[in-house]
Computed example of a mutant assay.
Amino acid sequence: MSEVFSARTVDTAAEATEGSDLARARDGDDAAFTRLVAPLRRELHAHCYRMLGSTHDADDALQDALLRAWRGLARFEGRSSLRSWLYTVATHTCLDTVERRGRRALPIDLGPSSDRAVLGDTPLNDVAWLGPYPDAGLAGGLAGPEARYEQREAVELAFVAALQHLPGNQRAALLLFEVLGFSVAEIATTMDTSTASVNSALQRARTIVAEKVPSRTQQQTLREIDDARLREIVAGFSAALESGDADALVALLTEDVTWSMPPLAHWYHGLEAVTDFAVRVPLTGCGSWRHAPTGANGQPAVGCYLWNDDAGAYLAWSVNVLTLRGEHVAEITSFVGPDYFTPFGLPASLP
Rank of each mutant, 00 (worst) to 15 (best):
R50I: 09
L322V: 09
R71P: 03
T122Q: 15
D109W: 07
R41H: 14
A139K: 07
F344D: 10
D11P: 03
L253P: 04
T93S: 10
G78S: 09
I332A: 10
V10G: 01
L44N: 01
T91Y: 03
D64A: 13
A7L: 11
L52K: 08
Q219T: 09
T193G: 03
L271Q: 03
A205S: 08
L44E: 00
G337D: 10
L249R: 01
N297G: 08
V281A: 10
W85F: 09
T55L: 05
T207M: 01
A235D: 15
N199Q: 14
T88N: 13
Y305H: 14
I187Q: 08
V4A: 14
L166C: 00
S6K: 00
G285S: 08
E3G: 07
G137H: 13
G19E: 07
V209A: 00
R71E: 15
R68P: 03
R223Q: 14
D29Y: 11
V209G: 07
E224A: 14
A23D: 14
A32K: 09
F277W: 13
V209L: 01
R50E: 03
W129S: 06
A205R: 03
M1F: 08
G298E: 01
L322I: 06
T55K: 11
D121S: 10
P132S: 12
L271W: 05
P262R: 04
V321S: 09
D227S: 14
D109G: 09
G78I: 08
G337A: 13
G295P: 14
